[in-house]
Design a protein around this nucleic acid. Structure first.
Lengths: 344, 344
DNA sequence: ATTCAAAACTAACACGTGTTAGTAAGGGAT
DNA sequence: ATCCCTTACTAACACGTGTTAGTTTTGAAT
C-alpha cells in the first residue's frame, strides 16, 4: 500500500535525467526544447515504473485541484425523487470526460453552512455546482458575490448567478391549453415543495397565467402543498379532493407527487382519467408505466447536469459565457392520464 | 478569489508566534506543552483571519486526504433505478458526520479501468467503496489483493473482500412459502440484470431452492432476463407470459422490473393480482403506491451504504473488523400484488 | 583557434503544511 | 556557583510537484 509510491525522482533516476526534465516531458511543456530521445527515455521510464503524479504535490504548486464540488441541498430528496440522480449522472459524466473529479456533499436543510467553507476555503475544489439551491442561502450568495466559480442547477434569483433552469411559462401554457381543450374548467394543483422554492413558485405562476388566458382562475383553496415524497402528494391530494370535490383536473408539481395524487383519487373512488385528469412534471422513467400512463412535461435532467458542468468548465478556463442564465425548454408529453372532462 | 488565502504564516505573524506553534495549537498536539494564553492568542488570530488550512499542504505532509472514493459500476443504472441513490445517501451522510469527503466516479461498463488507478495511485483518496462491483473486474480484485482499503456494496466473491450484502435465501424462502401458500405452483421470474451479477445469481438460486422445498421447480423457460429498466422488465415479461401463459406468479428481480411486469400483464389482459401475482424486491418508495401496492422484499439501501462507510472507517483507523462480510437480513412485505391463485 | 547562438538540460525556488530535534529561559536543589 | 529538570517555544526538515533562471554542451561560422 505505502510500498509502491513512485515519485518523479524515481523516474528521473531510472531515465538518467533530472527531476525537472521528467516534469517537463510529462507536462508537454513547449516553452523548453527537449531532444526526442530524452523524451522517449523518460516516457518509457515513467511507464515502466507506473508513475502517477501525486495529486497533493501538484495541487499545492499549481493551485488547481481538477475537482469540482457538487452540493445537493436537502439530500434526503434523493431517497424519494428520481430527478436529482439524472442531474448527478449528467454532471459526473461530463466531468469524467474532462478528466475532472466530483466531490459530492449533502447540505441538510437547516444544517451548518460550513459545507461551503470547508470545500472552498480549504482549496479542495476549483468550482462548485449547487443543485436545488435555496433562495435564502446566505453562504451561497456570498460565494456568488465573491465571484467564486459557481453554477446553479436551479436559481436563487441573484443578478450575478450563473444557472441552468427550465422555462415553464410556455410549456405549462401548452399543458393548460391541452387540459382546457378537453373541457376541464375546475382545475387544481399540488406542489412538490414549499412555495418558497423558486421552481415551485414559477410553476404555480405559469399555471395561473395559463388559466387566465382561458378566463379561468387558480383558486387558492384549489392548491395543496406536497413535500417531495409520493406520500406527501397522496396526503395533499386527498385533502384537496375532499375540500374541492368539484375539481376535474390536477396539475402535480412533479411525477413523484403525481403518484400520490393517483392513489388519493383511487382511494376516493375517482377513476383516472375518467373522473379526474392528472398532469405530471419531469417525465421520469416510470411515468409512462403508471396506470394510466402519465401525461407530463419532459425536462431533461441529464442534459441539465451536463450543461451545468460545461458552463462551469467555461468559467474555470476563463472562457466568456454567451449566456449566464441558460433556460431549457421542456416538452409536453401527452399520454392517457388526461382525458375529456366528465359531463355534469 | 485568490485574494483571501490565509496561511498559517499569517496567523503566526498576527499572534506573534512561530508557524510551528500555530500548527501545534490547531492540531491539539498533546506531546508538546504550550501555555494557555499562547493557545488562546493563536485561536483568536486564526478565527479573526478566518484561517482554513490548505488541504493540499496537509495531504502532502500527512499522506491522508480525508476523502473516500465512491465508484459506481454502470452509472447509467442511476437513471432508471432508485436503489443506488439510497446507498449513495447513506454513504454520503456517514462521511459527512465523520468530516470526510466523497469523490464520486462512474465506471462505465466496458470502460477503461483506469478509474481506480487515477484515484488510488494519485493518492487522491484514503479508501474506496465500490457499488455494484462486477465479479470479473480485474483492476478491483488487484486492489483488494494489494490490501488497499476497499469496501464493496455487493460482492465479487473474493476471499479477501470486505463487503456488505443481503442474505436472500431466508427471505426469498419466506416469499415462496407465502406465494405457494396462496395456491400458486406455476411460478416464473424476471431478472433485473444479466445472470453473471452475483446478486441476480443468488436470487435465482434462492428462488429455486425455495421452490424445491415445496416439490416445485424453476423451469429455465420460466425465467426471463431484464436489464435494470422498467422497459426491459416489460419486454421480458411480455415474452415470458406469451411463452408460458400458464404461469400465475412472477418473482421480479426488483421493484423497477416489477413495474414493467405489471404493465406487460395488463397489456396481455391479465389483471393483477386476480390473474397474476407479482413479488418485487427492494421496497423502493414508490412500491406501496403502485396499482396494486406491491408485495416485495425490503432491503435497506441507506443502512447498507452507512454500514459500508463505517466499515471503511474502521479499516482506515486500523480497527479490526469483527466481520469482513456483513450480510443484512431483508424483510418480506406483503401487500396486494399477491393473492390466491386463480382456479383452473 | 575563437566566438557566438542555439539546443539540451538542470539547480533552485515555491507551494503550505505537520512534526522532530533542539534552544532558551526559568527555577529549585545541591 | 553549578547542575539539572521542566516549561515554552522555534528552526529546520520533509512531503512531491511545476517552473524559471541559469548553466553546460553542441555545432557551425568567422
Amino acid at each position: 500500500m505505502a510500498s509502491n509510491r513512485v515519485t518523479s525522482h524515481d523516474v528521473a533516476r531510472l531515465a538518467g535525467v533530472s527531476r525537472a526534465t521528467v516534469s517537463l516531458v510529462l507536462n508537454r511543456s513547449e516553452s523548453v526544447t527537449l531532444s526526442k530521445e530524452t523524451r522517449e527515455r523518460v516516457m518509457q521510464a515513467a511507464a515502466e515504473l507506473g508513475y502517477k503524479p501525486n495529486s497533493a504535490g501538484r495541487m499545492l504548486v499549481s493551485g488547481l485541484t481538477e475537482t469540482i464540488g457538487l452540493i445537493v441541498s436537502d439530500p434526503s430528496i434523493l431517497l424519494v425523487d428520481q430527478y436529482i440522480p439524472q442531474v448527478l449522472y449528467g454532471i459526473e459524466k461530463a466531468n469524467r470526460q474532462m478528466g475532472f473529479h466530483v466531490l459530492v456533499e449533502g447540505l441538510e436543510a437547516g444544517g451548518r453552512t460550513r459545507a461551503y467553507d470547508n470545500l472552498v476555503e480549504s482549496r479542495r475544489i476549483d468550482g462548485l455546482i449547487v443543485v436545488n439551491p435555496r433562495a435564502g442561502d446566505r453562504a451561497l450568495i456570498s460565494l456568488i458575490e465573491k465571484d467564486f466559480p459557481v453554477v446553479l442547477v436551479g436559481s436563487v434569483r441573484h443578478p450575478a448567478e450563473v444557472s441552468v433552469t427550465f422555462t415553464t411559462r410556455n410549456v405549462i401554457g401548452q399543458a393548460v391549453d391541452h387540459v382546457v381543450g378537453l373541457g376541464h374548467h375546475r382545475i387544481g394543483a399540488i406542489t412538490f415543495s414549499p412555495r418558497d422554492f423558486v421552481s415551485t413558485n414559477a410553476r404555480l405562476t405559469a399555471l395561473s397565467s395559463g388559466l387566465a388566458r382561458h378566463g379561468l382562475a387558480l383558486d387558492e383553496d384549489a392548491v395543496g402543498d406536497g413535500n417531495f415524497s409520493p406520500e406527501s402528494g397522496y396526503r395533499a391530494a386527498k385533502a384537496l379532493l375532499t375540500r374541492r370535490p368539484d375539481l376535474t383536473a390536477i396539475f402535480a408539481g412533479n411525477d413523484t407527487i403525481a403518484i400520490g395524487v393517483l392513489n388519493a383519487a383511487h382511494e376516493l373512488g375517482r377513476s383516472v382519467p375518467a373522473d379526474l385528469s392528472i398532469v405530471g412534471f419531469d417525465d421520469l422513467p416510470f411515468a409512462r408505466w403508471l396506470t394510466p400512463p402519465l401525461t407530463t412535461i419532459r425536462t431533461d435532467g441529464v442534459s441539465q447536469g451536463k450543461l451545468a458542468a460545461e458552463m462551469l468548465f467555461a468559467r474555470l478556463h476563463r472562457r466568456p459565457l454567451e449566456n449566464k442564465r441558460v433556460r431549457m425548454e421542456p416538452e409536453l408529453v401527452v399520454r392517457d392520464s388526461t382525458q375529456t372532462a366528465p359531463t355534469g
